[in-house]
Amino acid sequence: MEGGEGRDEEQDGMSVHSPCNAPPSSASSLRKEQSQVELELRLLEALEIYPPAKLRGIHRHFVLYGLMEFLRRSFGRHFSPSDVLQLLDRFYDLEMLKPDDDDAEILNQEEDFSLPQSYFIKEES
């Protein structure tokens, strides 16, 4: 973990000039702008469930999958992983985010593999 206050870095990761800094609007792009706002709102909603810090840890692919699915359901269209990452890029500098502490905690204790007892039921009875 790169040192420093993790929680604060999340704030730092917030990009200053987005998302309000949309391209200069002509009348025709007004609708587009609205849909952008909608998109961003939904994304922020999704981030409540899938915290950006988790995009740095071992679960990152499943977190990204969760975001893809959330947006797919919200807008009824497909979002690719890079779509989601680009969208995220408006709010966060993922490189700057400190990986989730809890993620670092798992899989740090060696434990021999063992099959659950249920696999042996035939042998036992």
């Binding site: 071992i58 679960h59 990152r60 692919h61 499943f62 990204l64 999958y65 893809m68 699915e69 497909h78 690719s80 992983p81 899989l107 740090n108 204790q109 060696e110 434990e111 021999d112 593999f113």
Partner: peptide, 28 residues
């Protein structure tokens, strides 16, 4: 087409596998 969600899941599996193998997936 549209396999990129599957791709993401597979990446997730690989990532888990690489991290988990030495820690919890080996018999003594």
């Amino acid at each position: 087409m549209m396999t990129d969600s599957v791709g993401e899941i597979l990446n997730g599996l690989r990532c888990y596998f690489d991290k988990a193998l030495p820690v919890i997936l080996l018999y003594k």
